[in-house]
Computed example of a mutant assay.
Amino acid sequence: MAEDTEHQFWYNMRTGAVEKGLLSPSIDRVGPFSTFDEATHALDKLRANSAKWAEDDAADDR
């Protein structure tokens, strides 16, 4: 069953806008998110994931 991308939210990295559906090119957007609020906080989630991955990599190097 295909995802219903038209009813999901995306964060546009170029404009900083939250979009519903696939409005902008894939290179500019991250997601999908279930809600507008989740998409609004996309950068926070990306930063948190990046920090965790960096910690994991550092632990693996020990």
Results as ranks from 00 to 15, higher is better:
1 M>F: 07
2 A>D: 12
2 A>R: 13
2 A>N: 10
2 A>H: 08
3 E>S: 07
4 D>C: 06
4 D>V: 09
5 T>D: 09
5 T>G: 05
6 E>P: 01
6 E>S: 11
6 E>H: 09
7 H>K: 14
7 H>W: 04
7 H>C: 09
8 Q>K: 13
8 Q>I: 07
9 F>W: 15
9 F>S: 02
9 F>H: 12
10 W>Y: 15
10 W>R: 13
10 W>C: 05
11 Y>N: 02
11 Y>E: 03
11 Y>M: 04
11 Y>T: 03
12 N>R: 00
12 N>G: 01
14 R>T: 15
14 R>Q: 13
14 R>G: 11
15 T>G: 00
15 T>F: 02
16 G>M: 05
17 A>Y: 07
17 A>C: 11
19 E>T: 05
20 K>D: 08
21 G>R: 07
21 G>I: 03
22 L>G: 07
22 L>Y: 07
22 L>D: 09
22 L>F: 05
23 L>E: 15
23 L>C: 13
24 S>H: 06
24 S>E: 12
24 S>G: 01
24 S>V: 01
25 P>C: 11
26 S>P: 06
27 I>P: 04
28 D>K: 01
28 D>E: 14
29 R>D: 08
29 R>C: 14
30 V>H: 06
31 G>M: 07
32 P>V: 09
32 P>C: 11
33 F>V: 03
33 F>G: 04
33 F>K: 04
34 S>A: 10
34 S>L: 10
35 T>C: 01
35 T>E: 00
36 F>G: 01
37 D>P: 00
37 D>C: 01
38 E>Q: 10
38 E>M: 08
39 A>I: 07
39 A>T: 04
39 A>S: 13
39 A>E: 03
40 T>I: 02
41 H>G: 05
41 H>P: 00
42 A>Q: 00
42 A>F: 01
42 A>T: 02
43 L>E: 13
43 L>G: 07
43 L>K: 15
43 L>Q: 12
44 D>F: 05
45 K>T: 03
45 K>S: 04
45 K>N: 00
45 K>H: 01
46 L>R: 15
46 L>N: 11
46 L>H: 12
46 L>K: 14
46 L>G: 06
47 R>V: 08
47 R>L: 13
48 A>V: 00
48 A>K: 00
48 A>S: 00
48 A>L: 02
49 N>Y: 03
49 N>S: 08
49 N>L: 08
50 S>M: 05
50 S>E: 07
51 A>E: 13
51 A>R: 05
51 A>T: 02
51 A>V: 00
52 K>D: 03
52 K>P: 00
53 W>T: 14
53 W>Y: 11
53 W>S: 10
54 A>C: 01
55 E>R: 10
55 E>H: 10
55 E>W: 06
56 D>V: 05
57 D>T: 05
57 D>Q: 11
57 D>S: 06
58 A>L: 12
58 A>H: 12
58 A>N: 12
59 A>G: 08
59 A>F: 09
60 D>K: 12
61 D>A: 14
61 D>H: 06
61 D>R: 14
62 R>F: 11
62 R>V: 13
